[in-house]
Amino acid sequence: MAKGYNDPAMEKKFQDRYYHAADNPEFTKEVERIGRTMAHMCYQCGTCTGSCPSAPRSSYRIRKFVRRAVMGLEREALTDPDLWLCTTCYSCTDRCPRGIAPTDIIMAMRNLAFKWDIVPRNFLKTIQLIYTTGHGVPNNDVNRAARVKLGLDAEPETTHKYPEFLPGIQKIMDHYKMKENADRILSEGEH
């Protein structure tokens, strides 16, 4: 409801905070499809948040994210920066009495946020590194010297030693346009 106040600050202060309907059932279905878990069975017992290492030190509440997934509150879920505080420890998934995997709901929402170009830069940098070197944490000279001292080859038996495997990896990532999107988002300076 637009109240038409002159003062934009007043307009913002008194904005309608109701949610009027389960906004977006497609969002629920997508989250369940990508996460391969029955989010809609959640009865909000809070065992997940009770198990969470991030909850006591932030405003992150996994239970609320599951609620948003169930009620189709897509914008609230995907634009909340707390979405990126889950360490994927899976304690919540282990203990959920309804057999839901809240961690996988978070991962699904992160995948959907990426489609809205919402993703922290560190993730994109990791993708770039994997694309160019095959490793999320690539080798460096200090390490190469250490490896040789240990009697190992300077490069491990991976794509580092056999860069001919890189085109295959890049083809797989290109199939999903991952690098393309990562580059674009990074250059646009969004986050």
Binding site: W84, N111, I130, G134
Partner: peptide
């Protein structure tokens, strides 16, 4: 030795962006 392996890929960082990949 397992020739030609890459990053596993990192489940937290990579999976967050696109699980299919």
């Amino acid at each position: 030795p397992l020739k030609g392996a890459s990053c596993c890929p990192a489940p937290g960082a990579f999976g967050a962006v696109d699980l299919s990949v």
